[in-house]
Design a binder for these strands. Structure first.
Length: 163
DNA sequence: GCCAACGTTGGC
DNA sequence: GCCAACGTTGGC
């Protein structure tokens, strides 16, 4: 697969559980993205996300939800071992080593934005019409992002203006 | 804390 | 297969 086929994603995390600063403090600023327990998201982790793909880090369920930085996928989908651990919050007895139900990828921090792009600002721009994050009732923790939307959001993050 | 939207579970 | 009940997500 040629690099021009790399895809773009958005990964949500509640900062109270795992924030972009937590990622920045990981060894090599790299970690596994565990705990996803939704089949649609699982399928993307397992089947579609590839090393070289890039992803926005999104802070959800917090005072100021929004996109706070950039990551790269550095390892393709593999079984989420937290599902095997009875002590883990993400334990799922229906998943087994022989037949794993849940998957994760490894991610590496590329940049934490100097200026996060709040959800409220994303909503203002007609250029972002169709962005899955903005769809009413959307609760998926992993979403694909189109190249056009990706570029536009990056330009917002790089903009010196305060909107 | 509220509540709309959504996914999952399980009885039938 | 239907669908009500329930649990979770996540903005506000």
């Amino acid at each position: 697969m040629n690099a021009s086929h790399n895809r773009y994603w958005l990964l949500k995390s509640e900062p109270s559980a795992f924030s972009i600063d937590d990622l920045a403090n990981c060894p090599e600023q790299t970690t596994h993205w565990d705990g996803v327990r939704n089949y649609q998201a699982r399928n993307m982790l397992r089947d579609q996300m590839k090393p070289g793909d890039q992803a926005f880090f999104y802070h959800s369920n917090c005072r100021q939800p929004g996109i706070v930085g950039l990551m790269e996928i550095v390892r393709e989908g593999y079984p989420d071992h937290t599902a095997f651990d009875p002590k883990s919050n993400y334990y799922d007895p229906r998943s087994s080593q022989e037949s794993p139900r849940w998957y994760m990828v490894d991610v590496r921090l590329i940049t934490k934005f100097r200026r996060p792009v709040p959800l409220a600002e994303l909503k203002k721009h007609p250029q972002l019409e169709g962005l899955l994050l903005l769809r009413k009732g959307n609760r998926l923790s992993i979403l694909p992002v189109s190249p056009d939307h990706w570029d536009f959001i990056l330009s917002l993050a790089n903009s010196a203006n305060t909107h």
